[in-house]
């Protein structure tokens, strides 16, 4: 029974449990995205990620041409606690297509 309990996916958080110790993709509010190894989470989707890459997307309007300039800023952080209220979606490890 224990193995069935471990692997059964009945609710969304079960899928996240199976991603423990795997690299995941997290989309956050305010145009932020994270990729990192999932080390801990709770029911609020608070998380601790390791080897995190954060990408922030900003859009500026050019003063003269009024064109939208999309910029992405990347940085890496060794360990990051992420507060769950900013999480929009969590995706399990990317399988190479």
């Amino acid at each position: 029974m224990a193995t069935e309990e471990e692997s059964a996916v009945k609710e969304p958080l079960d899928l996240i449990r199976l991603s423990l110790d795997e690299r995941i993709y997290v989309k956050l509010r305010s145009d932020r995205e994270l990729r990192g190894k999932l080390h801990a989470y709770d029911q609020h989707l608070n998380m601790i990620l390791g080897d995190v890459e954060e990408v922030v997307t900003t859009v500026e309007i050019d003063d003269e041409t009024y064109e939208e300039i999309v910029r992405t800023t990347k940085r890496t952080v060794p360990f990051l606690f992420v507060r769950g209220d900013g999480v929009i979606l969590v995706s399990p490890p990317l399988r190479t297509a």
Binding site: L28, G50, V77, P78, F79, L80, F81, V82, R83, G86
Partner: peptide, 11 residues
């Protein structure tokens, strides 16, 4: 709070 950067020795 959005993030807390954690010290590696604290993980």
């Amino acid at each position: 709070v959005r993030y807390v950067q954690l010290p590696p020795e604290g993980v």
